[in-house]
Amino acid sequence: MNMTYREAMRAAMREALQQDERVFLMGEDVGRYGGCYAVSKGLLDEFGEERIRDTPLSESAFVGAGIGAALGGMRPIVEVMTVNFSLLCLDQIVNTAATLRHMSGGQFSVPVVLRMTTGAGRQLAAQHSHSLECWYAHVPGLRVIAPATLEDMRGMLRVALEDPDPVIIFEHNALYNREGELPDDVSVTEIRRAAVRRTGNHISLICYGGNLVKALEAADELAKSGIEAEVIDLRSLRPLDDATILTSVRKTRRAIMIDEGWHSGSLAAEIGMRISEQAFYDLDAPLARVCTAEVPIPYPSHLEQAALPQVATIVSKAREVLGQHV
């Protein structure tokens, strides 16, 4: 069936709402407006106000309510409009959701699913465009996942809802309008393992979420000059699937991490360190990364694009790592 990423997530939520009466959706403008990115459009009519709940503009309040509902036995899906706004409910997520199992000696679970958009590229300026996934990937007690394919957008939610602990799903806003063919039988996909999206022997391109599209395009470009890039889609940002990453890097002996976060303290940095710790003697070139420039994301389109990882920068970095001067 042909559909957009937006429709795939909507279908996933519809299925969850139909199958489990403990599931409900809440967030800013998710009901009448149909969601800021129109992901939940139509769900209010179908499921009613009890289960599709518009909230006040207070992230701390409604994420806290979601955590409370999860503690009370519900399976809330809480939509935070963008990861930039989630800083207002950081305390609820980091100090409460992530810690309660530990602090209650295992007595309490917080089975909440938090959905957030992330990423730049739509000229939404510095307060709506940052990629702060790695801040959450830093925190024990959270599972952090990022769908990059249509199948994962459709299938990850259900697995996330089955998790007894808090799960954050990062949806890159540039993906929503993309269309693709979704097989009929996809309703659950893996969220624990990274996926090899393209195999190759010369270099590993390690990415997630919105950058998978760019990495695959870069791999196509590299293939024209005989460079076979392997593309790893992390899927899970916490915990990281070291095994898949290392298997690939031990084969290709070279790796580039592609991450829309800033270089400093990025997931790319963490992955690079893990490779260095566990596969140093298998490396044939310095590890490299393509990240976002260390600036607040600019508003003007040309500057915004210049700040972000691009196909051309991935390609040229790959050639550099392979010792091909261009």
């Binding site: 044939d284 070139a285 392979l322 010792g323």
Partner: peptide, 12 residues
């Protein structure tokens, strides 16, 4: 003699 980045000697 190396064929890698900056003339580095690689596995190949």
């Amino acid at each position: 003699s190396g064929t890698g980045p900056d003339g580095a000697v690689t596995l190949d």
